[in-house]
Design a protein around this nucleic acid. Structure first.
Length: 601
RNA sequence: GGGGGCGUGGUGUAGUGGUUUAACAUGCGGCCCUGUCAAGGCCGAGACCGCGGGUUCGAAUCCCGUCGCUCCCGCCA
């Protein structure tokens, strides 16, 4: 239909007769002469209508409107020297139209595709007309970028002799983790498939099957509320697993790829590598203490750091601190470099953030420019203790030091949230930096958040406990660490992985500690356990969320911008109108009846 | 489930300490124009200011309720 695209004609084509097809991007009507910018995926070419001798199609050209699809036959001619448009790849030439065919007209657009003219259009409107939204150059750029990104990842793993294997989409409901999407079975009344939250069990079974290097760009389905970095319902993981490896072997495969992706798909520089050029590894407990989170943003590692000062203030005159410690709690201090200028309102807001994470309040000391300390709690602490606290956190004039007291966990996460907010305020989230790190040594168990004092898995029940079976017997559950790790980029958790537990005996014992009987384990994970009884190799792997990584690398406001057809903030597809009701017949076929709807229309 | 923010022509915004013909840009329709490239000029249509109620002589503006959108917390082994 077309001889060329709209992005390729140049001086060397002058004199040729060409056929172009595309969308009317803009029309400039000068009466006797009409210019049309014809657009396709490859670029824009200026079409010139109405020069003398070519009048038989004038009727058509006058009715052309934005976003109509047309085909033009014409001659490539050079533009007058002073009319060259350097902004276009094709700006040295134009096509003098001889024939015009209108292939499809367009209604008046619900919003302007030409983003230069108005600001950012309401996202829901854009999503309803996503096919128009995709015509925006930024959308095209994103799709192209993502295509290259996926290719890069595939090439990397293929180069290392990994095998890409596809795993089932109709899988089983998993008892742990996020809410499942359920699929009713027609052939088996009352039974359900579930969409996989991750191919976790399948990839471990592949290891047992002898596929010692597996990867997959795998769709994962979880029915949890969306966030800016969490797309509703479905997202993609670079799922990988290897046999006969240690944690460091996995890191050695992942790190070069992450560096390549950073360098190829962002304008960021990788910062903060350890002396051997590898990503720093921070034990979970240390990360919680120093940064107040298990996904620390290390772009401002030194501007603000948290220190335990429990011993310093153990017997101080400030009862909030002293009592907290007496009750088995801790006191941590966060120094914020340059935070001395925070207003009273700002400090109050930070205190609200801290309280939302479970502490009763947020004390502070301001270090004035002349070195004087300013604080409502100084009269209880005394000048001398105040000074030694400030010294302990390397406080300098112009800084502010925040304090939280109470149980270790809320103290850590409160100051972590305050640290994050201060970094935002002080502009420390430097977009030119990519700070990668591994968080390692996650605890195998923690107290359940639902039932107090019940021991539950901290992270992933399939992880190998450090020290194996012996530590399950010898150590207190809360002291057992797992070969479990996360990958973190600029404060975002972008991957989770582990050396797996491939030994049925250790598996049963590990579950027993979390309160699961042997038969419960058999009924929930029978397939996997059975496989481990037939020569399972030691194995481990991880699964980076590739959409989230690209979002962080590209500094996007929302992970929705990464997808061609994203769900909206409430999990709907506004263009396809899903989810939607189905017919009674369809429901009966899968043996489902709707009991009642809360809000009848 | 809880908290914050927003809702004004098709689109993006202004107006929000009470008195306006509800403004601007862009888009849309018409006319003029042979060198533009975010073309330009003239004319025109288009919003009962999300919805309902209240306070007032008077409400886009203040109050209450409601709906919608959005971000955050809970949740995401």
């Amino acid at each position: 239909m077309r001889s060329h695209t709209c992005g390729e004609l140049n001086k060397s084509n002058i004199g040729q007769t060409v056929v172009l097809a595309g969308w009317v991007h803009r029309r400039r009507d000068h009466g006797g002469i009409v210019f049309v910018d014809l657009r396709d995926r490859y670029g824009i070419t200026q079409i010139k209508f109405g020069m003398k001798g070519n009048t038989e199609f004038l009727e058509n050209k006058d009715e052309l409107r934005n976003e109509w699809v047309i085909k033009v036959v014409g001659d490539v001619v050079s533009r007058p020297e002073n009319m060259v448009n350097l902004k276009l790849k094709t700006g040295e030439i134009e096509v003098e139209a001889k024939e015009l065919a209108i292939l499809n007209k367009s209604n008046v657009l619900p919003f302007e595709i030409d983003g230069e003219k108005t600001g950012c259009v309401n996202e829901n409107l854009r999503l309803r007309y996503r096919f128009l939204d995709l015509r925006r150059p930024e959308a095209l750029k994103m799709l192209e970028l993502k295509d290259k990104y996926i290719q890069h990842i595939r090439k990397y793993f293929q180069g290392l002799n990994f095998l890409e294997v596809q795993t089932p989409i109709l899988a089983n409901s998993s008892p742990e983790g996020a809410r499942d999407f359920l699929i009713p079975s027609r052939l088996h009344p009352g039974k359900f498939y579930a969409l996989p939250q991750a191919p976790q069990q399948f990839k471990q079974l592949l290891m047992v099957g002898g596929i010692d290097k597996y990867f997959q760009i795998a769709p994962c389905f979880r029915d949890e509320d969306p966030r800016m970095d969490r797309h509703y319902g479905e997202f993609y993981q670079l799922d990988m697993e290897m046999s006969f490896v240690s944690q460091d072997d996995i890191f050695a495969v992942m790190e070069p790829l992450m560096v390549e992706l950073t360098e190829t798909f962002s304008n960021k520089k990788v910062v903060g590598l350890s002396s051997d050029k590898k990503f720093v590894k921070i034990p979970w407990r240390e990360s919680m203490t120093r940064f107040g989170t298990d996904k620390p943003d290390l772009r401002f590692e030194f501007e603000m750091e948290i220190k335990g000062i429990t011993e310093l203030v153990e017997s101080c005159g400030f009862s909030v601190f002293a009592d907290a410690i007496k009750n088995g709690g801790v006191v941590h201090a966060l120094k914020v470099h340059g935070g001395g200028s925070f207003s009273r309102k700002e400090i109050e807001d930070l205190s609200t953030i801290a309280k939302s994470k479970g502490v009763n309040g947020l004390a502070h000391i301001i270090i004035k420019e002349n070195g004087d300390l300013h604080s409502p709690i100084l009269k209880y602490l005394g000048e001398e203790l105040g000074k030694s606290i400030v010294a302990a956190v390397n406080g300098d004039s112009g800084d502010i030091v925040f304090f939280a007291a109470g149980n270790w966990n809320p103290v850590c996460s409160s100051l972590g949230a305050v640290r994050n907010e201060c970094a935002e305020k002080l502009g420390l989230k430097d977009k030119t930096k990519a700070a990668w790190c591994w968080i390692v040594d996650f605890p195998m168990y923690s107290f359940s958040e639902i039932e107090p004092n019940r021991i539950d898995f901290g992270h992933n029940p399939f992880s190998m406990p450090q020290g194996g079976l012996r530590s399950l017997y010898d150590l207190a559950p809360l002291d057992i660490l797992a070969y479990q790790f996360d990958l973190v980029l600029n404060g975002f958790e972008v991957s989770s992985g582990a050396i797996r537990n491939h030994d049925p005996e250790i598996m049963y014992k590990a579950f027993e500690i979390a309160g699961y009987s042997r038969s419960q384990v058999d009924s929930k994970f029978g397939g996997l356990i059975r496989a481990f009884e037939y020569g399972a190799p030691p194995h481990g792997g991880n699964a980076p969320g590739i959409d989230r990584i690209l979002m962080v690398l590209q500094d996007l406001e929302s992970i929705r911008d990464i997808y061609a057809f994203p769900k909206d903030g409430q999990g709907r597809d506004l263009m396809m109108d899903s989810p939607c009701e189905v017919s009674l017949e369809q429901l009966e076929e899968v043996h489902i009846s709707i009991s009642e709807l809360d809000n009848k229309s």
